[in-house]
Amino acid sequence: MTVRDTDPTLIDADELARQRRRRVEKIASWVLPAAVILLALFLWHWTVVANEIPHYILPGPGLVGEALVANAATLFDSWVITIQTTALALLAAVAGGVGLAVLFNQSRFAEMAFYPFAVILQVTPVVAVAPLILIYVTDLDLGLFVIPEKVLGMLIVAWIVAFFPILSNSTLGLRSADHNLRDLFSIYGATRWQRLRYLQIPAALPYFLGGLRIAGGLSLIGAVVAEFVAGTGGMGSGLAFRILEANYRLKTDLAFAALILIALTGVLIFALLSFLSHALLHKWHESAVKREV
């Protein structure tokens, strides 16, 4: 926005220092985490070798890498399944969380009636009820396709874990529109729908995206918990089942390989949702605006 009428090659010492700092930070933001991970791998390897730990107790990173490559095909199939469950649960959490938030926002009485219920769902340890949920559900026939009971059960478990941050953040966000803007909408005779569409939803977006980032990680955890509990083998088994199976067979290296894939998935989800958040907010929201010093 500022206009310089001085020589454009003229850069003062402060600016030079700032540029240097920015360059160093950019490099460090990659180099430092990579170095720490390498160091951790080395410590891991060293601990295993120095203490002569048997591979079925704790395999070294080399063995885990080998297991990852040797079982690539099986692990990939399981990975796809875990990602599917996670993605579906996250979608359901978004639909449920946002839907309930809008309902609560439109009706104070609905909020009074159902919000405590949502909190109860949230604080109930899902591991304790997951086996029951998997017993209760049956195949769901949606006409076009059938959701098998196991998949449905896992989806419900993952959904319970993931929907609450979206609900509570969206509820807060829908209420957070500037009160003068709300008055302005009243003065101009805005309808409920217009108020929701043009004022409350945009105002809630940063809050929703914050909840979404938490829910992304939680839906993965929910999917893993559900797979652990569902625990049946054969076709359509996710990464968590591979971990269980590997543990039974004392193939700890394979369990670690699956675990690494799960962790990687979590990181990817977080990165993806952070990118989405930045893409939607960078033009206007304070959290995503780069400041000129």
């Binding site: 003068n180 302005l184 909408f185 101009y188 005779g189």
Partner: peptide, 30 residues
């Protein structure tokens, strides 16, 4: 609704909308 315009102590603009979209608001609501 068309008879009245209001200016508050704060600018009270929608931060997610451009200047033109902000000015459009009273007409958009109609």
């Amino acid at each position: 609704d068309a008879d009245l315009g209001v200016v508050f102590q704060e600018p009270t603009l929608m931060p997610w909308a451009t200047v033109a979209k902000n000015v459009w608001l009273p007409m958009r609501l109609r």
